[in-house]
């Protein structure tokens, strides 16, 4: 069963690589001007480009081959993690994205943790007292938050906690508390949805026949909740996390751009803006792989907490 999860996700990773690789190839071919000159300019600086250097690049990257051969070369290079050099900075793409990936994972993990810390207690409380004042106010808050793009949430946080009350840096990276605002922006967007999922799930669990039966067996309210509530209510919440990951990844692109956080999302937006195809490919690939990796973790967590569907 675990093997099946891993194989499925591995296949998905391959699809991501193929999709990103192909789109990047199309992008590369559709760029105006002579590709070889552009690559050479990226590598050796604008002033050092000679016909010779361009010819050398052309040979190396097989740029004069027919399209289908060039396409195969392109994909093979990607498989070997040879992602080329940035057309802008001239640095190898792999080095740049290695750093970026670390920053993005840091942000993603902090956001998920913060979101869980908010969503679970608040969701459970509003589920236990459904239609009470807490439930109603959280519903309103969640509806308002869900109607904001995540960059607007980030913007509000900046205006409030960096400009009006200068508690945190407006943007950038390097101070100890720099992660707080970007991570909170992402976490608020996540928690706005998942707190409602927790709430609905809690409500369903405490009205389920098995919850009732546990009470009737003689367990106290707290024992019933601990033994039968927590795990059962987590099942749909964790499964839903898989759907929310799309939003998280999209949020990372926005929030990193807004806060100039040196992660993959920022890198991707930047690369697209400056049409730096090797960087586009590298960052999109990492973004996709990060998405697949997080999805795999969600699958494994689902498998761990829900024994249904496992072979006997």
């Amino acid at each position: 069963m675990i093997q099946r999860i891993l194989i499925n996700r591995l296949l998905q990773a391959v699809m991501v690589a193929w999709g990103v690789g192909s789109l990047s190839f199309v992008l590369m071919r559709s760029l105006p001007g002579d590709m070889a000159y552009r690559v050479a300019a990226g590598r050796y600086g604008q002033d050092n480009v000679s016909a010779e250097a361009a010819e050398w690049v052309r040979q190396e990257l097989a740029l004069d081959l027919p399209a289908w051969q060039a396409y195969l070369h392109w994909l093979l290079d990607m498989l070997r993690l040879d992602l080329g050099v940035s057309l802008i900075s001239g640095a190898p793409v792999i080095d740049e994205i290695k750093h970026q990936l670390g920053h993005s994972i840091e942000l993603a993990v902090m956001a998920i943790l913060l979101a869980a810390l908010m969503a679970f207690p608040l969701g459970i409380l509003s589920g236990l007292r459904a239609r009470g004042w807490l439930d109603r106010s959280l519903l309103l808050l969640s509806s308002l938050l869900r109607a904001q793009p995540v960059f607007v949430i980030g913007l509000m946080l900046i205006l409030a906690f960096a400009v009006y009350w200068p508690l945190f840096p407006v943007a950038g990276f390097g101070q100890g508390n720099d992660w707080v605002l970007p991570a909170f922006s992402l976490a608020l967007a996540l928690a706005a949805v998942s707190s409602r999922v927790v709430r609905d799930s809690t409500l369903a669990v405490i009205h389920s026949p098995y919850y009732q039966f546990a009470r009737v067996k003689g367990l106290s309210e707290w024992q019933t909740f601990r033994q039968h509530g927590l795990r059962n209510l987590s099942v749909p919440v964790v499964a839903f996390m898989g759907i929310q990951l799309v939003g998280l990844i999209e949020g990372i692109v926005m929030i990193e751009s807004l806060f100039s956080w040196p992660g993959i999302g920022h890198g991707l937006a930047h690369a697209i803006f400056s049409r730096d195809v090797p960087m586009i490919q590298g960052t999109a690939l990492m973004m996709g792989l990060l998405f697949v990796a997080l999805n795999t973790l969600v699958d494994l967590a689902c498998y761990k907490i829900d024994p249904r569907g496992r072979p006997e």
Partner: peptide
């Protein structure tokens, strides 16, 4: 003691049978 209407639904779907009984011995 009350025997539930639909036992399939009255048992915790993610808990093993033994634990569903033993928790009563333990906590009650």
């Amino acid at each position: 003691a009350m025997l539930p209407q639909e036992p399939w639904h009255a048992l915790d779907p993610v808990m093993r049978s033994r634990r569903q009984v033993s928790e009563v011995h333990q906590f009650v």
